[in-house]
């Protein structure tokens, strides 16, 4: 290569870099940057732009409306209630999934036999489609008729069948949603925790054993502090996931073109407003921006408290 280099103009040579490094960098990175730009960044920017326009049935609107879409969304009681519901939902589901997946990881990490088997068993649901899981939950396990799995079990105790997803008093639908979500997600976070657990140096445990520490003390003073980086990442992922809830909610609760006003995630609400026959991209985008800001705020707050990326001491 260096033989032919002098023949080229100095600028091209400099641009291509030593051993054509820059050229190869562009060849390998370029397509992905381009894809990211076209499919991620431009749409995000576009969506922000749309949120300032009256954009019914068009993505190239001309009527600028300033902040009125934002004001409408904030004044919209349904949107506010969907946000409030999901703050509550996050407050419940995040710690629960955290504890369950950590518990599973601790158990499996200490399993003396069939460790790979259990690890696979708990991880497998992650590979299952949310839609498929929702249908199994809706049609088979929590079917409202007397021969549904849960109702059959209840029937053994002489309890009348419950229409799990149809009634709101008491709100049994939460049981269906939460169990489906736990089943689908716990395994994935368990794997993250397992990876974290396996990185803890055995010498720490040996030292603890010599000092006479055991059980809870080891967990409290060695395992948990050592898992801090993993825990923070898991918490952040869980939180974002909770606010982005869509698939299982939509597939469990929507019917005949409508979605009930309870347990309605912000994304489902925006989906009905912005897509479908609604095609109101202005309000939909404004809602999406509000939701993004909210997620960013909560995530930042959480980081301040827990410190993601802070150097481990």
């Amino acid at each position: 290569m260096s033989v032919s280099a002098p023949a080229r103009g100095p600028i091209t040579t400099r641009l291509r870099g030593r051993y054509d490094r820059n050229l190869w960098f562009a060849v390998f990175v370029g397509p992905f940057v381009l894809g990211l730009l076209v499919f991620v960044y431009i749409p995000i920017v576009w969506s922000v732009v749309l949120s300032f326009f009256d954009a019914h049935n068009t993505v190239t609107p001309s009527k600028f409306v300033g902040l009125s879409n934002y004001l409408d969304m904030i004044r919209d009681a349904s949107f506010r209630s969907s946000l409030a519901t999901f703050v509550l939902f996050a407050l419940f589901i995040v710690p629960t999934t955290f504890v369950v997946s950590l518990g599973l990881a601790l158990l499996i990490n200490r399993a003396r036999f069939a460790r790979t088997f259990f690890r696979s068993v708990y991880f497998l649901p992650t590979a299952c489609s949310y839609v498929v899981a929702s249908l199994v939950w809706k049609l088979s396990i929590f079917s409202g008729v007397r021969f549904g799995l849960m109702n059959t079990v209840l029937g053994w105790f002489g309890i009348e069948p419950i229409a799990w997803l149809s009634v709101t008093q008491p709100p049994w639908y939460w049981l269906v949603i939460v169990t489906a979500r736990m089943w689908l997600q716990a395994g994935f976070y368990m794997i993250l925790f397992l990876a974290g657990l396996q990185r803890i140096s055995p010498s720490l445990y040996e030292a603890a054993a010599i000092d006479g520490a055991g059980g809870w003390k080891v967990l409290r003073f060695i395992t948990l502090p050592q898992l801090r980086a993993t825990s923070t990442a898991v918490l952040l992922l869980l939180l974002i996931n909770a606010f982005q809830a869509f698939d299982e909610f939509y597939n469990l609760l929507s019917s005949s073109g409508q979605y009930p006003p309870y347990a309605r995630p912000p994304l489902v609400y925006l989906y009905y407003a912005a897509l479908g026959q609604g095609q109101d991209f202005g309000h939909g985008s404004a809602g999406a921006v509000i939701l993004t800001l909210l997620i960013a705020l909560v995530a930042l707050g959480q980081n301040r408290v827990l410190g993601l990326g802070r150097r481990e001491d």
Partner: peptide, 28 residues
């Protein structure tokens, strides 16, 4: 939209609602 990307990052789902549609429009 109702696919199964349960564990993605923020922007992915955000896109699905707000920008995904725009992307659809951009790329025809």
């Amino acid at each position: 939209m109702s696919g199964a990307e349960g564990n993605g990052f923020g922007r992915r789902r955000f896109l699905a609602v707000g920008g995904g549609l725009a992307a659809l429009a951009v790329t025809g």
